[in-house]
Design a protein around this nucleic acid. Structure first.
Lengths: 303, 303
DNA sequence: ATTTTGTTTTTTATCTACAATAAACATTTT
DNA sequence: AAAATGTTTATTGTAGATAAAAAACAAAAT
């Protein structure tokens, strides 16, 4: 079967959604650039648009004939990349309750259950291994190390080192830096969320991610950026399955963020350090509370 | 062609090298455990030993008949795992002078040149990408980011954060910890190397790696350990191609290590922090000096 | 009853093949 | 001549096949 044309289908859907009847369509290279794909795929999209009678296409002439309807789109299941399918399926599996730390992970079985080839599963696992949740026995299976208390503590430890560093760097950014504007925007969003907290507190996790990403951007260090990418993905799935979105917990975090932002804006390094530490300590608590106690944790209690 | 039996050949060579005529051979599971392979492969080794007339094998009875000769070993080229072959070939390539940052990396071409399939090259590149030296354009090629001054600075930055942390943790280890003995052994090796520096200064890099690995062990943090693994691999190849082994530079590093070890043994956190910082600063200098100036560095000078 | 050996099954590591996608080259249009 | 379209070629992403290696199962020996 080789590969699915999900790049084409997904880009086609995006382009159809943005089609306006009045505007004439731009050149092929321009369409390709807009969609972030190659010209070959852009041409495939134009061909299909033409076949579906949505546009008339003759060389440079690309005229929109009708507004697309629901039926013109590809169903959303067909536009997911294989990588995303595997990722979702795998994360669901390892965050579910019957995934015990120490469990073996079998490439062949995973591939069969997801309905895909072994190569893709293998590559996914290799990529995923950098998150520290699985480990390879050479010439043999993978081991699930699991989302344990140890994992959370090690993650939090590195996160704190990196964020203290990045926050200090942020405080040293020149006033003309674009980052200050972005910080002020995010501050406004925090305040807006606080005013309508009852309805919006569940959106906090996305805002949280954007806030910390902005801070880490100041460090201009690929290792720190990569690590935060990993954290973001892990948290994304973890908090999806573990409803740790208590309203009060998020409210407290928003206030901590606002203090943290104020410290950054003051440029006072001691204040930044202290606000950052305060927030990180409570973030660590939130993380630890979201982890179910397992037998192994009771045997080796930390601290 | 599927896979090569390099695991078998490499384990066979190891076992043949350790064979003693007098001793009777242990059970199959024990041999497997000694060599770190499965019993199936251990049996394959016994079969070959028997076929070659080196042992007589009948069920539990495994008698060594003769001392193996040079001709009994597999040639060393046949015992390299594919992963190692690809790693060496790739590192040689990207550390060579005509590998300019920004260059495209082509999986197919690499595979052809190394004489291997594309899958293995792909998997290698995915694993290697965590070192931050290459980056993937989805659905397209990889980009060589290169061993640039920026790379070295970012690497050094994280390394310093981690090592200061680990060193502090090391200082807090209980006196009965095994690590203190290991530290004292390494200290003795430093002193021995210093006494015979003219002949041995080139071995410093291996000792250096062991020393820092020991320190990082104290942090008990998988992310820190993984990062140091990456550093060790990168340095291994980098210093192999860039002969940065000036005698005086290594001599200075040995003295710094000895000061650092003394601080650790004193348990005085302030002393540890200061000795660690001193050493890290000069390690960073050594690293930066080993990087050839490229045009891009001259355009964006750091600091 | 446990350990060892004998045999069979499963899984991994790797190659090859091929559709989708990107990239390169050639021709036409402005 | 620069940009767009038309056409061809190269590369990537993925499935499927297979030998090597591991693991599981069965029988025999201490």
């Amino acid at each position: 079967m080789a590969r699915q044309n999900t790049v084409f289908k997904e880009a086609y859907n995006r382009y159809v959604a943005a089609l306006r009847t009045d505007a004439a369509l731009p050149s092929e290279p321009e369409i390709a650039a807009q969609l972030g794909i190659s010209r070959s795929t852009a041409r495939a999209i134009l061909t299909r648009l033409s076949d579906a009678g949505i546009i008339r296409w003759n060389k440079r002439q690309k005229i929109v004939l009708r507004q697309p309807t629901e039926a013109d789109f590809f169903p959303s299941e067909e536009t997911n990349s294989l990588h995303d399918i595997i990722e979702r399926s795998f994360m669901q599996r390892i965050l579910s309750d019957d995934a015990a730390p120490g469990m073996q992970i079998n490439e062949l079985e995973l591939a069969r259950e997801i309905g895909t080839g072994t190569t893709s599963v293998r590559e996914f696992l290799i990529r995923f291994s950098r998150f520290g949740l699985i480990e390879k026995r050479p010439n043999s299976h993978w081991i699930l190390k699991g989302f344990t208390r140890d994992f959370a503590l090690e993650l939090a430890e590195v996160r704190e080192m990196f964020e203290l560093h990045s926050a200090a760097e942020f405080g040293r950014l020149p006033p003309e830096s674009e980052a200050w504007r972005a910080l002020s925007d995010i501050k406004a969003e925090h305040q807006a969320m606080l005013r309508d907290l009852d309805r919006r507190y569940k959106d906090f996790s996305a805002l949280d991610e954007r806030f910390h990403l902005l801070i880490h951007g100041a460090s201009k260090n690929r290792f720190i950026a990569d690590f935060y990418d990993a954290i973001a993905i892990i948290f994304h799935y973890h908090y999806q399955w573990n409803k740790a979105f208590a309203r009060e917990r998020n409210e407290r975090a928003i206030h901590e963020h606002l203090d943290y932002i104020a410290a950054l804006e003051s440029g006072d390094q001691a204040a930044i350090n202290s606000a950052c530490r305060l927030h990180l300590r409570s973030a660590r608590q939130t993380l630890l509370q979201s982890i179910p106690l397992t037998p192994s944790d009771e045997v080796h209690p930390e601290q």
